[in-house]
Design a protein around this nucleic acid. Structure first.
Length: 197
DNA sequence: CGCGAGATTGACT
DNA sequence: GTCAATCTCGCGC
């Protein structure tokens, strides 16, 4: 039941990341198949928001698996994570891209600049926008089907590729990015760049 | 088509 | 004050 689902996300974040590939994310009238994710290993991972300990923002990552960790970056974008690992361990998986399955018209309204179907939920901030997920949703239990933002875990994907994480300036050598290779919605790899300005 | 830079707010040092 | 797990546009080849 709920506990069994949560157990699938309760191990190492890299294993949880593979569980999340192919899952269906529902967000306010739009559903999407998750095709690209990245694992963040909490206090062991220099690239994780939890690396320097618990703060009000990252508190959700320290809780039980299957909850939504949302954060705001670059002054304009929201990104969506799923907390993983046992209660007390601050790991999470960033959802980087999805293919819109249902609610296409609504997704298109939320993503006015998307020109192709595959671009609707391509990229972490775009995925959040297409599904209407904001900071206000942080902390909700994604394994609770009644909630208007929730996750449906499907079978483990057969085809999985892996590589370095995107936009991460530290620990860029760690291979904790996973994607489904035959998807058109996988975001392009970009090395971390300075946000000077 | 690929690369480079700007936009803009919140959280943490 | 500095930095950030990004997106999009515009320019140059």
């Amino acid at each position: 039941m709920g506990a069994a689902l949560r157990n699938r996300l309760g191990g190492h974040p890299a294993d949880a990341a593979r569980e999340l590939l192919g899952a269906t994310l529902f967000g306010r009238g739009v559903s999407a198949r998750i095709v690209e994710v990245e694992a963040y290993f909490g206090e062991h991972d220099p690239a994780s928001h939890a690396y320097r300990g618990r703060t009000p923002r990252n508190a959700v990552m320290f809780g039980p698996a299957g909850h939504l960790y949302a954060y705001f970056v670059y002054g304009m974008h929201t990104c969506v994570n799923v907390s993983t690992g046992p209660d007390g361990e601050a790991s999470a998986v960033l959802l980087r891209a999805g293919e819109v399955l249902g609610g296409h018209d609504l997704a298109a309204l939320r993503r006015p600049t998307a020109r192709r179907h595959a671009d609707l939920a391509r990229g972490p901030a775009n995925l959040a926008a297409a599904l209407g997920i904001t900071l206000a949703d942080a902390g909700i239990d994604l394994l609770e089907p009644a909630v208007e933002v929730h996750l449906q875990l499907n079978g483990t994907s057969t085809q999985v590729s892996s590589g370095p994480r995107v936009g991460v300036s530290t620990a860029a050598d760690v291979v904790w990015r996973f994607w489904i290779p035959d998807s058109t919605a996988v975001s392009a790899y970009r090395r971390a760049t300075r946000a000077s300005g």
